[in-house]
Design a protein around this nucleic acid. Sequence first.
DNA 1: ACCTGAACACCGTTCAAGT
DNA 2: ACCTGAACACCGTTCAAGT
Lengths: 236, 236
Amino acid sequence: MAKATRGPERREDALSRERIVDAAIELLDDEGESGLTFRVLATRLTTGPGAIYWHIASKSELLVAAGDAVVARAMGEVPASATPREAIRRIAVCVFEAVDAHPWVGAQLSRAPWQTATLQIFERIGRQVQALGVPGAAHFTSASALVSYIIGVSVQNAAQGRDLEPRADRAAFLETMSARWKELDAHEYPFTRNVADQLREHDDRAEFLAGIDLILTGIAASLQGQERGGSRRRPV
Amino acid sequence: MAKATRGPERREDALSRERIVDAAIELLDDEGESGLTFRVLATRLTTGPGAIYWHIASKSELLVAAGDAVVARAMGEVPASATPREAIRRIAVCVFEAVDAHPWVGAQLSRAPWQTATLQIFERIGRQVQALGVPGAAHFTSASALVSYIIGVSVQNAAQGRDLEPRADRAAFLETMSARWKELDAHEYPFTRNVADQLREHDDRAEFLAGIDLILTGIAASLQGQERGGSRRRPV
DNA sequence: ACCTGAACACCGTTCAAGT
DNA sequence: ACCTGAACACCGTTCAAGT
């Protein structure tokens, strides 16, 4: 099939920022963060390491671009939903799963905050915070808390799985970890020992959403306190 | 002053795991994460790079040990407090400030979750969650949400300041960032544009605590939902 | 047991030289 | 304008050899 491209004709195999970033994402997914090397990347693109520098200034710029691209695609996949609360949960899950599928994005998100990637998430969450009826003055704080939580947990979740062998039973991992918690010093770690069983049975995605719900409940409670009315609600 | 040490006498300048870790922390604080090099570290310890490997297996082990040490010291400095709610806020602030003072710890915390450092925070928070009256089955979830938020935000906050010049007015940084937000595309980023002023005036530490409060409020509200009938317990 | 420091196998990045 | 690939200035890590 012939494909109609616009703009000046380019060699199919010509280097471009876009091709480089896509190859980098592929390489990062295949080999992990330590697998991304200008030499390997150049080989995959059938060129030399120097060629890449014509299109991209540095490795860190490449990582930022790759992270932004992944987040942008994830945001594009957020399904529409009726209520703001439900929308927030969906955006959160999309970020969580995107980072889970591309663990290196996590490192990127926490390394470069207020980058395009974070901003996209912030904007999407912010609109829903607004829709929730949060007063203007609290927009930033509420959205910020949600975004921080979403990114923070996603990153930590991804880091957790990153070192596991490809299919290495997550269950087995939790099992050993739980066993280790039970062997902790009873005087130093009483709480942790007690919840060791809950660790074994827990579902990361569910815990993540439970945290979102706690924050949403907190926001809702604050709303109620703010609304005029005789009886002061719970303190915020 | 002569100092009385116990155990076998050792040369004052002998290498030891402890001395290496302390030197590493100092180096990391001075020069940032990229400044920690086995060669530089060896020079500071007036030895060769190979010597370090007798005491420590790898650079990543060194980073973990350094991070653990910093967190342990920070936890030691948490002041006592009357209510669980206040205690949680204090632990949170201590972590936040420790990571702020040692930005490289942030990367470490999110790179190696469920490491000793995280566990220490988890344990401390968990005890207070328990004291809050959260039912046993929700212990893990509540503590986990709090710890995730605390670490997540601390890490992102540290990453934010990390690239700033030593004293480079944070205010100036927020000013430029705020200005940039106002120039964003009105169709793509309506929310972010609107809160650009709030970004400029915001206080990271205050926003952080506001988020903690939202979660605590959420927990308290859940407690109340759980208790049937009269709400005899005071709000958290 | 503990330390030394040269050597190995890599990196990111640059740059003269090509097309 | 864009690409090539050798070369530079580093890394973490190892290991024979010393004490």
